[in-house]
Amino acid sequence: LWVRYLFFSLSLLIYVTIISANLVIVLSVCLETSLHQPMYVFICCLCLNSLYGSTGFFPRFLMDLLSDTHFISCPFCFIQMYITNTCLGHELSLLTVMAYDRFVAICQALHYHRKMTFRTVLLLLILAVLYPAWAFGYFFYQAIILPLCGNQLHKIFCTTWSIINLSCVDTTVISIVGQFVAMISIFIPLSFVLYTYLRILLVCRRSSSEFRGKALQTCLPHIVTFGNYCISLLCEFSLTMYNVDEVNTFSVVLSLEFWIIPPIINPLVYGLNLPQIRGVISGLLNVGKRLRPV
C-alpha cells in the first residue's frame, strides 16, 4: 500500500511541477510586451500544449493510482484518446512552425519582419491546430463507431490503436490506412524541420563566429525540444509495435515518457537558455519577493 502512495506522491509532484513550469513561461510571454514576438508566441503555445496534454492525462492517472479497480467510461476514454493524439500532433506542428520561424530569422534575416507579420503568425498557429485535427479526425470517428467486444485496455491511458484492437470486426484496412496516414503526417513535418536546420547550418558555416553563437543560442532550445519529441515518438511507436498483452513496467515507462520528460524539459530549456525569458522570470520572482509580507 505504501508503494502506491509513494507513486501517487511522485506523480502529483511531477504534475504540479509541469503546471508550474509551463505557467511561468506562459505568464512571462503574456505579461511582458517585449516578448510579444513570433518566437516567444510559439514557445508560449508549446507550453500551453503541454498544459493541455498533462491535464488530459494526469488527473485520471492519479485517480487510478489510488483506486483498486481501474475502470473508465467510454465517453471519458474517447476524450482522453482525443487529447492524447491531438497533443502529439500539436507538438509536432508547433515544432515545425518554430523551425520555419528560425529559418526565416537566420537565413532571411532582412525579410524577417516582412514575412513574420501578426497575420502570418496567426495563420501558422491556426494551421498548427487544424493539421492534427484533420490528420486524426477520420480515425477518431472510425474508432468511436466501431462495435467493441472487449473492455480491457493494455495501456495506462486510452489510445486509438488500443480501442481499435478491441473491435469485433476486422480492422485490418483501418489499421493499414491509419499507419500510412500517421507516417505521412509525421514524415512531412519532420523532413521540413531537418531541411530548415540543414539550411541554417550552411548559412552559419559561411558566417562569423559571433553570428554562429547568436544562431546557436536561439536554435539550441528548439533542437533540444525537437530531440525530446523524437524520443517520445520513438517510445510511442515502440509500444505500439510491442503489442503488450498486459500492463507491465516496460509499457508504463514508455507510456509515461511523453507525459513527463518534454513538459518538464521544454520550459526549463527555454527559461534557462533564452536570456530574454530568463530576465522576465527573474523580474517576476523579484517582484514576488518584494511583495512578500514580513
Rank of each mutant, 00 (worst) to 15 (best):
2 W>L: 11
3 V>C: 13
4 R>V: 06
8 F>V: 07
18 I>C: 03
19 I>M: 15
20 S>L: 14
23 L>R: 00
26 V>K: 12
26 V>T: 00
32 E>Q: 12
32 E>K: 09
34 S>M: 09
39 M>W: 06
44 C>G: 11
47 C>S: 14
50 S>Y: 08
52 Y>S: 01
56 G>W: 06
58 F>P: 00
60 R>H: 10
60 R>C: 07
62 L>W: 00
68 D>L: 09
68 D>H: 11
71 F>C: 06
72 I>Q: 00
73 S>P: 00
74 C>V: 11
77 C>A: 02
78 F>G: 10
80 Q>C: 11
82 Y>W: 05
84 T>Y: 14
89 G>P: 07
89 G>C: 08
92 L>D: 00
95 L>T: 05
101 D>N: 11
103 F>P: 05
107 C>P: 08
118 F>W: 06
119 R>N: 03
120 T>P: 00
121 V>W: 08
123 L>T: 13
127 L>H: 04
129 V>R: 08
130 L>P: 04
132 P>N: 00
133 A>R: 12
133 A>S: 10
138 Y>G: 07
138 Y>T: 07
138 Y>Q: 10
139 F>K: 06
140 F>K: 09
141 Y>P: 05
145 I>M: 08
147 P>K: 11
147 P>W: 00
149 C>V: 01
152 Q>D: 08
154 H>D: 15
157 F>R: 15
161 W>Q: 10
165 N>V: 09
171 T>L: 05
172 T>S: 15
178 G>T: 05
182 A>Q: 06
184 I>H: 03
186 I>V: 13
188 I>V: 14
192 F>I: 07
194 L>T: 03
197 Y>T: 01
198 L>T: 08
198 L>K: 10
202 L>H: 07
207 S>P: 01
211 F>T: 12
221 P>N: 13
223 I>M: 14
226 F>A: 15
230 C>P: 01
236 E>N: 11
237 F>M: 10
238 S>C: 08
241 M>R: 02
241 M>N: 05
242 Y>M: 02
250 F>R: 06
263 P>N: 01
264 I>G: 00
268 L>K: 11
268 L>D: 04
275 P>M: 10
276 Q>Y: 00
276 Q>D: 10
280 V>F: 02
282 S>K: 14
291 L>R: 12
291 L>S: 06
292 R>Y: 03
